[in-house]
């Protein structure tokens, strides 16, 4: 499945939801905000947000250093 993640086209295993995508990328549990087609999703919405091929996804990692 082709998705545009952080501006780059990436091919992932088929995924139904945003949670599947985040899980495939090994990012579950990380301090992360997901945005799909310009809409910010809370972590509770990941499991119910469908993903479709070509979707633009931004995954923003919160950075802890200082």
């Amino acid at each position: 499945m082709e998705l545009i993640i952080n501006g780059q086209t990436q091919v992932l295993e088929p995924a139904d939801t945003m949670e599947d995508v985040i899980k495939q990328l090994g990012l579950l549990g990380k301090p992360l905000v997901a945005e799909a087609n310009g809409v910010v999703l809370t972590a509770e919405q990941w499991a119910t947000t469908s993903v479709v091929p070509g979707m633009r996804i931004e995954l923003v990692h919160f950075v802890g250093g200082g």
């Binding site: 549990g29 990380k30 301090p31 972590a43 990692h61 919160f62 950075v63 802890g64 250093g65």
Partner: peptide, 13 residues
């Protein structure tokens, strides 16, 4: 509102 978990995933300076 953005993040609930405070784990930096081992990525520190």
């Amino acid at each position: 509102c953005f993040i609930q978990a405070g784990d930096s995933g081992g990525e520190t300076c």
